[in-house]
Amino acid sequence: MRVIQASVICEAVKELCIRANCVMNDTLLGALQTAQQEESYPVAKTTLGCMLQNAQIARNDMVPICQDTGAACVFVELGQDVHIEGGLLADAINEGVAQGYVEGCLRKSMVDDPLRRVNTQDNTPALITTDVVEGDSLKITLAPKGAGSENMGQLKMLKPADGIEGVRDFVLDAVRHAGPNPCPPIIVGVGIGGNFDHVASLAKRALLRPIGASNPDPFYAQLERELLKEINSFGTGPAGFGGKTTALAVNIEQAATHIACLPVAVNINCHVARHEEVVL
């Protein structure tokens, strides 16, 4: 058994909040640079250039890349041989989010209630998903998620008879309907299988995969490639002003499901697709 202090978790989360929001990761930067080189449409080239320039300013000044510093989505992989001392895991994460968002001059975007809507002033509560895994380490992934892209998500319970064509049509319709709103070029997270709530979680987790990494199952990797090609034939382009680059990646996560079910969910990320992780 290994002991991890709650205060260490809090400090790590605080640092993740600031870094994820202010420093665009190199994989994403590289994908945007490649997209800019490959665009033939001048407006798309210019628009991607502005996005890259923006990321550079944010990194130099350590200010948020986007003013919507998101809901703090936190994914925890807790080794079952870890014992947390000095407080509750969720409290430590929330304290880290509060400190990170206040000290890092990040925007506080959480309201305490969906209908009465009073801002909590420190961006808590974090939206925490915890998995217990093998081992004695604690992995924390922080993915600040802005609402422009989050609001374009969709979920549907298809029939098994709808099959792969039904899934394909649903994903393409969701992205077409989103149009310029989710700040393209986007990353499209797709969940297939599980049940009503599980499929949404699969779609969100799919966004954590680095750009360029395919689904390990060749069947789904092929579907990812086909969907990406279709989406990039829409012409929406960067910021929706027209161009080749509507999406940088389509990431599918699949899971076992019921004999009567074919759930599918789409969760979209904007071109400021943020996620940072730490292993304690």
């Binding site: 944010a58 000044d61 200010v63 948020p64 890349i65 986007c66 003013q67 919507d68 510093t69 001059c105 990040l106 925007r107 609402a147 422009g148 609001n151 709103n181």
Partner: peptide, 22 residues
């Protein structure tokens, strides 16, 4: 249509991009 992030000391305003108009 915008809601800025807080300004760091010495800045007129924090980052302030557009929000979805719809």
């Amino acid at each position: 249509y915008a809601g800025p992030a807080p300004a760091k000391p010495g800045y007129a305003i924090g980052p302030v991009g557009p929000t979805s108009s719809y």
